[in-house]
Design a binder for these strands. Sequence first.
DNA 1: CATGAAACTGGCGTGAT
DNA 2: ATCACGCCAGTTTCATG
Lengths: 162, 162
Amino acid sequence: MGKAMTANGFQIGKPSSLPADELSRELLRLLAADPRRNASELARDLGVSAPTVRDRVRRLEEAGVIRGYRLDVDPAALGLPVAAWVRLRPGPGQMSRITELAERTPEVSECHRISGEDCFLIKVHVAELAALEGVLDRFLVHGQTTSSLIVSTPVPPRPLLP
Amino acid sequence: MGKAMTANGFQIGKPSSLPADELSRELLRLLAADPRRNASELARDLGVSAPTVRDRVRRLEEAGVIRGYRLDVDPAALGLPVAAWVRLRPGPGQMSRITELAERTPEVSECHRISGEDCFLIKVHVAELAALEGVLDRFLVHGQTTSSLIVSTPVPPRPLLP
DNA sequence: CATGAAACTGGCGTGAT
DNA sequence: ATCACGCCAGTTTCATG
């Protein structure tokens, strides 16, 4: 059950060899452009049958290449137009506290453990600037914070399929 | 053509009033859990008809509440197991250069303009640690960089629907 | 390739403004 | 009277074995 290769012979995690079977790669590219396209349509574009496409997708899912499908909702439409990246430097023995707090804080949409002087990077969404204070206060109990408001997002999250 | 309200009376960007019609909110919650569920199934769970679900989804898309649907692919499976957050402090007059460079650099999966001492935060994916050097070099032409390797992601990107 | 299910479309009823 | 919203029933298309 190695992670380097799937049951179908896809080579993954090996940059020097072909990173994935060519058909799967093209399939992933099409799905990245629109994850809701149905199998028949994809089959036409790829020059294979629809069942082949469905099998490929299922295998890519089972192999963990496709981790999932996400709905991208505008936070502003949910009443949370202000976003910030916050770096956290936990006090001694506060590491696990931080991850637990991030996990159960609804304003936190992601949390990364990083190297460097700060140990965590979290993304926070609030209704107005003043509401950031309350969130920061909760984390300040366990360490220092450095906040950066997100002014714009010139490159929104995009697929890594060049 | 204001942004505060859609043609259908959905109130958006107004935290104090209900952020969206209750049916839409529940629909968004179900879609966030699994964006690929079909309309018929959603209709059963919501107690409405399938065409109603489709209409709601279409309207939420047109209103920009649903920005899109994303495929979540494991970068490691594409041969890019190493990820880092890099803060960028551009030199004088280099702001637009940075966004353009981020846009056309395939290793960059997202780029945010932020407040604070650094002006940008970008996410970079590479095959091995050594490959980060090449990417940094390209940005160092336009300013200073501060890199943090992503060691783990305790809270992966998640929906903001408490 | 056949069958059952789901997606789309146009038209109608209802309730609020 | 109008408009927004949801439902129904037609046909076409797709998924699944």
